[in-house]
Write a protein that binds this DNA or RNA. Structure first.
Length: 854
DNA sequence: GCGGATCAC
DNA sequence: TATGGTGATCCGC
């Protein structure tokens, strides 16, 4: 026992020494792993959080159990077949291996904590963490000896290390420092990819090539330190120093930047067997990497007095792993040859790879897979147990393959705000909180000029069980009021579902997604009168964009087989995007009926039934001419609307014949449109006529509610290209129905982006939930109806399931390993887009086994 | 399109 | 006393 302890201490000391943290008596401090775990368990056991963690663990175990059952059913024949298939694929991958890029992953060491220590000397040599008693985002290396880690609650950290100093975060400051670092990185790769405030990928392939032609002078990068300024002999200083360090006459050009105060420290570390500041690499002919990387460090350190670690490898996946290898203030390089890559990968634990997290690790471990070698050995089995996306990814990893170029920022797909708080169970408070979140979100959206169609709320109860509820509306929203109108209903559904028990919440979030793409935005801004000219511009712009697009992107799919999995994923993403683009701007649109309107139609039909039964005369307002239509049935009213739609102009104040049938309407409208079109825009006649015919024909086959929806959708989605001009002249329409019960169905849609603010004096009572909406804003009211209708569907659907309220609920909390930054995330080494090949390729037997993921 | 789950930072 | 916030993706429905 004592022996073991001694050994541990030895090991620990060695570790601390290598970490460069063995200052004074620090090495005697800290805790061993066992003790750390014990303290953590004591602090966490019995908590609601822990309860939920256990529950999640059970679920994962069940998944593993299912997987093992699947595995047991696999025959050796199946396995052989899979082996052949996988090996064919692996061979292709091998042939397309690209070792020509040099990717660097830079990772600042304990960034936030380092910044705080730099700015407050009192914190130096003390265990500190950045965060709060509830949650820490970073700890310094001193604190890590006690087991204090990012993503750990501060109060537990305090138990591990009572003398721990917790500093509240100062993101503005970190941002500023990060900016300084990024300025340096840009010198080496102007297109570097920042992953967060403290992490970035650089592709220095080009830089290295250019650099070879640089004169020695340019490769040196002298910074005047206090010392060198006093002496005014920087070169001499540097020369002396470097000679001292290397113990030999080393050419000065190895040092791009020299900070006399930093180098000795670095050198000492290299003596600890860290291949980091190795003069050896120069002799090995690895000078370029050495040069670049050390200059980066030095420059970063010089400018910010903070240290970074780096990984250098032929692809992002490997570079990322490398940067962690000699942390802190160290670097590691994988030489660009296959053997070096495979040697590195060989014993690498899969958990080290970005994209393989706690759960995947556990599942793979159940299959006896811990290292990358084992991952490769089990490739056939994995192809039978996991989805195509997954096993492709695993295969890439096990071959040491990754992305060889850095993807530029894609478009944002969602934006959200969420907040944790001490329990809130009063519904009123929950609503007002929701409203606040919506306001915040709206502000963020406004800053970025974004509008979206899907609003999602996220709720976490006091037992840490999470659920999300989403609703997609037919047109984009962005204001606080609009978002809240939707979020409120989603929340209401959940509140009602648990009634009379209150929702006991500890977190609430609001997210918006399904953003309008660039084309949508352009068209939203377009005036109705000028829509045809604008269309020409859009087409021209399309051509322009397509021309401007990097030729590479278009040749890529042709040489796809030579790309890595990651590159392929990216290409697919680009091409998917282009497909969409083409589809929405060039090809003929397909007509979909949005959910709200489907239900609206249903409601209308129900009302129709009622009216038929009661045999009462109804008053309908035509959505096109806005005139009240007294009819005995909706059918008559339908004919009116159809006629109206086919008429020359909405604004024209004349009645339409209800006798006109739909076909005639189609022709009528077409001819009118053609006429107007040819008068105003002769060049466009051909195209628009075709589109128009298509539209009218489709509309003719629908009932009126659908017709309106079709038009509405077409209006917004297809940017009005194909609409008869008469329709465009109306900026809004209203559908309203009333029956003898006083149920009114009223709906107004606007083609203008800012329908918000449209005021009515009527009391707006939602036809679905029957509640007075207490708003005179039609736009908000519409939103409410949309959501209410959606809610109806959801509730309808839920009836079929086992009552989820009384069931143990599904849950999930994000307990990510590291929590350093609060920024955009991207994973260069991971799947970036849902696999399209899955859909295009015919299903094969293997896919049936993907079920296990359930 | 929705909801749960996983992952990264 | 006390276990985060933002964004992305995948999978099964």
């Amino acid at each position: 026992m004592d022996n073991t302890k001694e050994k541990n201490d030895d090991y620990k000391d060695d570790l601390l020494l290598r970490m460069g943290l063995n200052d004074n008596k620090a090495g005697m401090e800290g805790l061993d792993k066992e003790k750390i775990n014990k303290i953590i368990m004591e602090a966490t056991k019995g908590s609601r959080f822990y309860g939920n963690e256990l529950k999640k663990e059970k679920q994962v175990n069940q998944r593993i159990k299912n997987m093992m059952q699947q595995k047991a059913q696999i025959t050796s024949q199946q396995l052989r077949k899979a082996q052949l298939q996988v090996d064919r694929f692996a061979m292709d991958l091998e042939q397309s291996r690209d070792l020509n890029s040099t990717i660097v992953h830079i990772d600042m060491d304990a960034f936030y904590a380092a910044v705080e220590m730099r700015d407050n000397p009192e914190l130096k040599n003390k265990p500190i963490a950045v965060g709060s008693m509830s949650m820490l985002t970073t700890s310094n290396y001193h604190a890590r000896k006690f087991g204090v880690r990012a993503a750990m609650p501060g109060f537990i950290a305090k138990r591990l290390c009572p003398q721990l100093i917790i500093v509240p975060p100062n993101f503005d400051k970190y941002q500023a420092v990060s900016k300084e670092v990024k300025e340096i990185l840009a010198d080496y790769d102007p297109n570097f990819m920042a992953m967060s405030l403290d992490e970035a990928y650089l592709n220095i392939t080009e830089h290295l090539q250019e650099r070879q032609n640089w004169p020695e002078d340019k490769r040196r990068y002298f910074i005047k330190t206090r010392n060198s300024i006093e002496n005014d002999k920087p070169r001499e200083e540097v020369s002396k120093l470097s000679n001292k360090i290397m113990g030999q006459k080393t050419p000065l050009l190895i040092l791009d930047v020299i900070d006399p105060f930093k180098l000795p420290f670095s050198f000492m570390k290299s003596k600890q067997n860290k291949p980091y500041f190795s003069g050896i690499s120069i002799l090995d002919g690895l000078m370029p990497f050495f040069l670049i990387l050390n200059s980066n460090f030095s420059r970063i350190e010089q400018k910010t007095t903070l240290t970074a670690s780096a990984g250098i490898a032929p692809n992002t996946m490997l570079a990322k792993v490398c940067s962690d290898k000699n942390k802190p203030n160290g670097q590691y390089q994988i030489h660009p040859n296959r053997q070096a890559v495979m040697d590195f990968i060989k014993d690498l634990p899969i958990r080290k790879i970005s994209g393989i997290g706690q759960v995947t690790e556990k599942m793979l471990k159940a299959l006896g897979i811990i290292t990358c070698t084992e991952l490769y050995q089990q490739r056939a089995l994995l192809s039978l147990l996991f989805s195509e996306t997954s096993w492709h990814y695993f295969l890439h990893v096990s071959l040491g393959l990754g992305s060889t170029h850095l993807e530029r920022d894609g478009e944002r797909k969602s934006m959200s705000v969420e907040r944790t708080f001490s329990e809130i169970s009063k519904a009123e408070e929950q609503y007002s909180l929701c409203q606040e979140l919506c306001s915040e979100l709206a502000q963020d959206l406004q800053k970025k000029g974004l509008k979206g169609r899907t609003v999602t709320i996220k709720l976490k109860n006091v037992n840490f069980e999470v659920k999300t509820r989403a609703s997609t509306v037919s047109s984009v929203v962005s204001t606080a009021e609009e978002i809240f109108a939707i979020a409120k209903e989603l929340l209401r559904t959940e509140v009602d579902a648990d009634f009379p028990h209150p929702l006991r919440l500890r977190l609430m979030g609001v997210r918006i997604s399904s953003f309008a793409n660039e084309e949508d935005k352009k068209h939203q801004q377009r005036s109705i009168i000028g829509f045809l000219q604008a269309r020409n511009q859009a087409l021209a712009a399309t051509e322009c964009i397509l021309e401007k697009t990097d030729e590479d992107q278009f040749t890529k799919p042709l040489k796809m087989s030579h790309e890595s999995f990651f590159d392929k994923k990216r290409s697919e993403m680009k091409w998917n995007h282009q497909d969409t683009f083409k589809c929405e701007t060039v090809s003929k649109p397909s007509l979909h009926t949005s959910q709200p309107f489907q239900v609206l139609k249903k409601k209308m039909d129900e009302n129709l039934e009622t009216s038929k039964n009661s045999d009462n005369c109804q008053i309908f307002t035509c959505p096109v001419c806005f005139r009240a239509q007294e009819s005995i049935s909706l059918e008559v009213f339908n004919r009116h609307v159809d006629a109206c739609l086919g008429g020359p102009s909405v604004s024209e104040d004349h009645a339409f014949s209800s006798e006109v049938n739909r076909e005639e309407n189609a022709h009528h409208s077409l001819s009118v449109f053609e006429k107007q079109d040819s008068e105003a825009h002769q060049k466009n006649t051909e195209v628009t006529s075709v589109d128009c015919a298509d539209l009218i024909e489709t509309v003719g086959n629908l009932s009126k509610a659908e017709s309106i929806d079709a038009l509405s959708n077409k209006h917004s989605k297809e940017e009005c290209h194909s609409l008869p001009k008469c329709f465009h002249q109306s900026s809004s329409y209203t559908v309203s129905l009333e029956n003898e019960d006083g149920i009114s169905l009223s709906r107004q849609e606007s083609s203008q982006p800012s329908s918000h603010g449209m005021i009515t004096d009527q009391a707006l009572v939602c036809p679905v939930c029957n509640l007075d909406q207490k708003t005179s804003d039609l736009s908000l009211f519409n939103m409410h109806v949309d959501v209410c209708l959606n809610k109806g569907i959801i509730q309808e659907l839920r009836k079929d399931k086992v009552n989820p309220v009384n069931q143990p609920k599904q849950c999930s909390t994000s307990t990510g390993r590291a929590q350093k930054t609060v920024t955009r995330t991207r994973r260069p080494g991971l799947i970036t887009k849902h696999s399209r090949s899955k859909k295009t390729k015919p299903d094969n037997s293997r896919h049936t086994l993907d079920l296990f993921f359930k």
